[in-house]
Amino acid sequence: MAVLSVEGLTTNYKTLRGWVRAAEDISFEVEQGEAMGLAGESGCGKSTVALSLLKILPPGGKIRKGKILLSGQDLVPLSEKEMRKIRWKGISIVFQGAMNALNPVFKVGDQIAEAIKTHEPKVADSEVRERVAKLLETVGIEPSRANNYPHEFSGGMRQRALIAMALAADPSVVVADEPGTALDVIVQAQILRLLRDLKDRLGLSMILISHDLSIIAETCEKVAIMYAGRIVEYGDAVTIFKDPKHPYTQGLIKAFPSIKGEKVRLTSIPGSPPDLLNPPAGCRFNPRCPFVMDVCKRVEPILEEHGDKGHTVSCHLYH
C-alpha cells in the first residue's frame, strides 16, 4: 500500500472576488522510499497542495473535496488536535523560502529542539540536546553551530537546518517545497544530494516541489506536472521526460535550456498562465495549446492512462 495516497483533493481560497481554484481534483500516490516531483510554474498550486497535506492552509484556504490517505487513514476529516499528532511525525514539511523560514530571534538548535519537544514532551533536555546534535550532523552541519542564530548561517546552512527540523520527529513523508531554489547552483546541488542521500539512508518517502523540471528529473522517480491548479500528466519520470504526452509538458520541457547538447534557439509557450479566479472553460491549457480542438474549449479532460502503465495524461488528443 502507498504510504500517501491523495484522491481528488480540491483546495480553493475564498476571496472577496470569489473562489481561487488553486488545486482541483489532485490525485497521486507516494510509495515507501519513493520521491515524487510536483512540477509546474509559479502560481499553479504546488504549495497549496503541500499546505493541504498538513492542513496548514492560510485563512480563506479550504479543502473542499477529496481524501488524503496517510497509511490508509484519511486526514481530511481530522480535527486540529488530531492533526497535531500527524504533523512533523506523519508528514513534515521543509517550507519554501529557506532564507526566511527560520525564526530570527531563536537559536537554530532551540528551534530544532522545539520540533522534537512538541511531539515528545517527556523527553529529557539532555536527550533533546543529543538528538539536535545528531540531526545537525545528519544534514552536514557542525553540531556546535546549534548555538548560532539564523543570521549567522549561510543560505545553504539555513536550508540544511530546515531539513533537520523536518526530520526531527522521524516522519514517514517529507514534503520539500522548492528546496534550494534561492540558492546558488553549487549549494543547490549540495542540498539536492543531501535530500537524495537522506531518502536512501532513512527510507523516506518524499514529495519534492519545484518549478524547475531539471531538479525533479535529477531527484525523483515519479512526476506530476501541474498546470493552473490541475495535474495534467503523471507517471514515471523516465517515461514523462522521454515521451511527454501533454502539450504543456512538451512545451515546458522544450523551454528548459539544457547545458548539454547543441546551441539552439529557445522555445516558449505563447501566452501566459490563467487567472485562477476565473480559469478558462474546458481544458485550462486550451488558450495556449498549439493543438487546441473544439472540444477542448467545452469539456474538461480527465486524467486517464495512456501508453505505458501508470502514465496518465489529461488531454483530449488521446481520449
Binding site: V185, I186, Q188, A189, Q190, L192, R193, R196, D212, L213, S214, I215, A217, E218, T219, C220, A237, V238, F241, I253, F256, S258, I259, K260
Partner: peptide, 15 residues
C-alpha cells in the same frame, strides 16, 4: 552542478 532535465543522466555527480 547545473541540473539536467534528463532522469537518466548520472545522479551521483561530484559536487
Amino acid at each position: 552542478a547545473v541540473p539536467v532535465p534528463d532522469p537518466e543522466s548520472k545522479r551521483t555527480k561530484d559536487v
